[in-house]
Computed example of a mutant assay.
Amino acid sequence: MLNLPSSRINTIHISRNQHFYGTKTFQGVVDISTFKSDYFQNYYTDDLFAKELFKPNENKNYYRQSYKDTLGNSYRRLPDFRYQLLWLPQYGVTEKNQEVEFFSSDISGDFEVIVEGFTLTGKPILLTERFKVQ
């Protein structure tokens, strides 16, 4: 970095949060971006460590059971034996109070709602609530 002219630096981002890189843990990251994104081509030396990152997975469409329309009447006599009632892996909270609607199955018993995620500041959240289906 010492050989990089400041006139080529576009942004510098500093994160003081804990970051995991493989099996190693770092308490912070300094991210420097150049205007032409040419740091690796022009300033790479042998003592630098380059790591190829994985590509993110494609978005998935998850099935969500619904009995609201006329199609629900045609399946009224078919049993529904789902244990997992709802799966929303990328649900964003935009308001303080939000409703999430789902249908229970034909299985009676105790079920548990689990909400996991992170706040905007990166703090982990875990909320659980149990309910009974009779």
Rank of each mutant, 00 (worst) to 15 (best):
M1C: 06
L4V: 13
L4Y: 05
P5H: 05
S6F: 02
S6P: 11
R8D: 06
I9K: 02
I9M: 03
N10Y: 08
I12A: 05
H13C: 00
H13L: 02
S15C: 04
R16T: 13
R16L: 11
N17P: 03
Q18P: 00
H19V: 10
H19S: 10
Y21F: 12
G22I: 06
T23E: 11
K24Y: 11
K24I: 04
T25G: 07
T25D: 11
T25R: 14
Q27S: 10
G28P: 04
G28K: 10
V29N: 10
V30W: 01
D31P: 00
I32T: 10
S33L: 07
S33I: 04
T34R: 01
T34P: 01
T34Y: 01
F35Q: 12
K36W: 02
S37I: 00
S37W: 00
F40Y: 10
F40I: 10
Q41D: 14
Q41P: 00
N42P: 00
Y43C: 01
T45D: 06
D46I: 03
D47I: 00
K51H: 01
L53E: 01
L53Y: 04
F54E: 12
F54H: 02
K55E: 08
N57D: 12
N61I: 13
Y63T: 02
Y63Q: 02
Y63V: 03
R64S: 15
R64K: 15
Q65A: 12
Y67S: 03
D69S: 10
D69T: 07
D69C: 03
T70W: 09
L71K: 13
G72R: 10
G72V: 08
G72H: 14
N73I: 05
N73D: 15
N73A: 13
Y75G: 03
Y75A: 06
R76N: 11
R77F: 13
P79G: 14
P79I: 07
P79M: 09
D80E: 13
F81N: 14
F81L: 09
F81M: 08
Y83S: 14
Y83G: 04
L85R: 02
W87P: 09
W87I: 13
Q90Y: 14
Q90F: 13
Y91P: 04
Y91G: 02
G92R: 15
T94R: 14
T94Q: 13
K96D: 01
K96T: 04
K96Q: 04
K96L: 09
N97D: 13
E99G: 07
E99W: 02
V100T: 08
E101T: 13
E101H: 05
E101L: 08
F103C: 05
S105N: 06
D106I: 08
D106M: 08
I107L: 14
G109R: 06
G109C: 05
F111H: 05
F111P: 01
I114A: 05
I114S: 12
E116I: 09
E116W: 00
G117C: 09
G117N: 09
G117R: 07
F118Y: 13
T119V: 07
L120Y: 12
L120Q: 08
L120S: 09
T121R: 15
G122E: 02
K123T: 12
K123E: 14
P124F: 03
L126P: 00
T128L: 04
T128M: 11
E129D: 05
E129Y: 07
E129W: 03
F131M: 05
F131A: 04
F131K: 03
F131L: 03
K132M: 15
K132S: 15
V133M: 04
Q134A: 14
Q134C: 10
